[in-house]
Design a binder for these strands. Structure first.
Length: 638
DNA sequence: GATTAGGGTTTG
């Protein structure tokens, strides 16, 4: 530091920037793309900062040297830029590196030590800088919401983007466009990770460790521009992977059971800061991660030692409850169980300890208690499932739905498409909302308008609130827009049919939309059965399902099993539960009955269940999963 | 010496 002549740097507040000037600035990172190789000659990092003036500045930072770009690990970090050029792009100020650009980065956490991260050999750092950093920390603590995207694997949900801090255990070439990373963070995902098929020999890493950690490891596929970065990573290093995408996939296995697996993708491109950054051992998050890994490793090795022993024992014979159970006893058991079987009553009961030692696929009848279940919140357990491609997605929230409807109906209704043989039309112009036009088309039955409670209406430009109001009076609503020759369905992000308070969605991948006029081919134009409407419109309807993990315990062993069910298990339709307070209360009641809060496990009721076992395959190893089937909650509980 | 990218998720 002493080699640098004492310079008094002036820092320009972000609300006083002038185009064409070169300035020094301080700011809190609001958004950033970790450095990546640009299509030119340099590395690039895009960083948006904000300061106490509440003005944002997006900066384009280029350098031929990766380390010369700011070492930002997360949103909330504080940066100091020297010699940043201000220019105007799309009528807004923009920062760009100018000759001699240099940066310092600090942790943004209040109270954390103020240690600059930089690759500069010599830099100016005074008590004034110290004060600047602390002032920004204080300001940010009340003006910037903490990032919610840094998640542990145990907290990830199907279908989300998040940032993962992890250790690299293995890597493998998959094909030119994708590369496999095997990582862990010491916690277990709510569903087992998918296993990407690779040739055994191409996996680089400690195979023994990967095998021992089993489902504590996840498989991440990285694509396109991330492949070469991934290829260069050192096994054992600590990483932060930004904007990692999860997707829950169900695949029908040989045993006909549905396998649920969580996929992890780092898609191509750098949108939303997608990328990978190596974290140094000195990073405080790495410190915490290491502790979590150590304790998880300990548990895993104990566990794997147990499995090792059991592999050398004779495989456990299927235990029948008492040789032959009398019919009377059988009935009594059924009555005492909170769940009953809807088929396969002839199967004999198997203790969980025996199931845990057997191969898949098998079907079992068990009697156990529900120790715990996930997710705990009802709305998190309801998903949309495509019976054709088995993809799983979240149910859009009402606010989301409102936006989807707004976004997909920007064009005004075309009067040429109104009043056809299929429907009579009416159009309104709203007064207070900038003249928004709403068209409603009343679908006729053989040229005659039916009673309103049997009438399907097509609506253009209506808000969710307006649609709900119309549903009080009319049978069903289909949101549409004016196409070139016919009214057409909106993008399948929007429901293709709404009845009561239930939105019926279609699968974007499997549907092949057909013209609205095809509604004419429906013979029955009064009952509007969703599956029939879907069929004539070329929509593959998504099914509402409950997806839950039940941890079952019968005193001999503990088993995690999945439940994927539309209405048979709880006898509550998953499609209606989100919009019906009474059904929600019933659901909560059932769950409290099956797994009473604040009570000892001994006092929980017994559940009689049928479960299927099946394999999740992973080139070198196989993991067994279990799913509940043909079981229903006893009626006297509902 | 200019270029790179110019925040706003893939569709594997």
């Amino acid at each position: 530091m002493s080699l640098v002549p004492a310079t008094n740097y002036m820092y320009t507040p972000l609300n006083q920037l002038k185009s064409g000037t070169v300035v020094n600035v301080y700011g809190v990172v609001k958004f950033f793309k970790p450095p990546y190789l640009s299509k030119g000659t340099d590395y690039c990092s895009v960083v948006t900062i904000v300061d106490q003036t509440n003005v944002k500045l997006t900066c384009l930072l280029f350098s031929g040297i990766y380390e010369a770009l700011p070492t930002i690990y997360k949103v909330g970090d504080i940066v100091r830029f020297h010699r940043l050029k201000i220019q105007v792009y799309k009528k807004e100020a923009q920062g760009i590196t100018s000759p001699g650009f240099a940066s310092l980065t600090f942790e943004g956490t209040l109270g954390a030590p103020v240690i600059p991260r930089t690759s500069s050999k010599y830099f100016n750092f005074t008590s004034e800088d110290h004060k600047m950093v602390e002032a920004l920390r204080v300001w940010a603590s009340t003006h910037i919401s903490p990032s919610l995207t840094l998640l542990k694997l145990c907290d990830v949900q199907p279908m989300q983007y998040f940032d993962l801090t992890c250790q690299l255990l293995g890597k493998a070439e998959v094909d030119g466009a994708s590369f496999l990373l095997k990582v862990w963070d010491g916690t277990r995902t709510p569903f087992p990770s998918w296993r990407v098929l690779i040739q055994d020999l191409v996996l680089e890493g400690d195979l023994g460790q990967i095998h021992r950690l089993q489902n504590l490891t996840i498989d991440i596929l990285v694509y396109d521009n991330h492949v070469q970065v991934a290829r260069s990573l050192q096994v054992g290093s600590f990483l932060r992977i930004y904007s990692l995408h999860t997707k829950l996939q169900s695949v029908n296995s040989e045993s006909q059971a549905t396998l649920l697996a969580l996929e992890f993708h780092l898609h191509g491109g750098t949108s939303y800061g997608r990328g990978i950054r190596v974290l140094p051992e000195s990073n405080s998050d790495v410190d915490q991660l290491k502790k979590a890994l150590e304790s998880a490793e300990l548990t895993a090795s104990q566990h794997s030692h147990g499995i090792y022993q059991s592999e050398h024992e004779e495989s456990f014979p299927t235990v029948s409850s008492s040789g032959s159970v009398s019919l009377f006893e059988e009935e009594r058991c059924q009555q005492l169980s909170a769940t009953i079987l809807t088929d396969h009553q002839y199967l004999e009961k198997t203790p969980l300890c025996a199931i845990l030692k057997q191969k898949a696929p098998q079907q079992y009848r068990i009697r156990a208690k529900l120790r715990s279940y996930k997710p705990r919140r009802l709305f998190q357990s309801v998903k949309l499932h495509c019976p054709k491609c088995h993809s799983m997605q979240e149910v859009p929230h009402e606010e989301e739905l409102d936006l989807i409807l707004k976004d997909s109906t920007t064009n005004t209704p075309d009067t040429k498409l109104q009043n056809t043989l299929l429907y009579d039309s009416n159009m309104w112009t709203t007064e207070d909302q900038g003249g928004r036009k709403v068209a409603v088309h009343f679908v006729k039955n053989n040229g005659i308008l039916p009673l309103s409670n049997e009438c399907l209406i097509l609506i253009e430009g209506g808000t969710l609130c307006e649609i709900y109001k119309l549903l009080d009076k009319f049978h069903s609503v289909i949101p549409v827009r004016s196409g070139h020759e016919d009214l057409e369905l909106l993008d399948l992000s929007a429901p293709f049919l709404i009845q009561g308070k239930v939105c019926h969605y279609g699968c974007k991948q499997c549907s092949n939309l057909r013209p609205i006029q095809n509604l004419n081919s429906l013979v029955d134009k009064t009952s509007w059965i969703p599956s029939s409407v879907a069929e004539v419109l070329g929509v593959v309807p998504l099914q509402y399902v409950f997806v839950m993990t039940f941890t079952l315990d019968d005193g001999t062993g503990v088993l995690d099993t999945y439940l994927m069910d539309s209405d048979k298990f709880f006898q509550i339709p998953a499609s209606e539960v989100l919009s019906d307070d009474d059904l929600q209360k019933t659901m909560d009641m059932i769950m409290d009955m099956l797994c009473p809060p604040g009570m000892k496990v001994d006092t929980y009721p017994w559940l009689e269940c049928l479960i299927k076992s099946y394999y999740v395959t992973n080139g070198t190893e196989q993991q067994i999963c279990y799913q509940i089937f043909d079981t229903t909650v006893a009626e006297d509980l509902i």
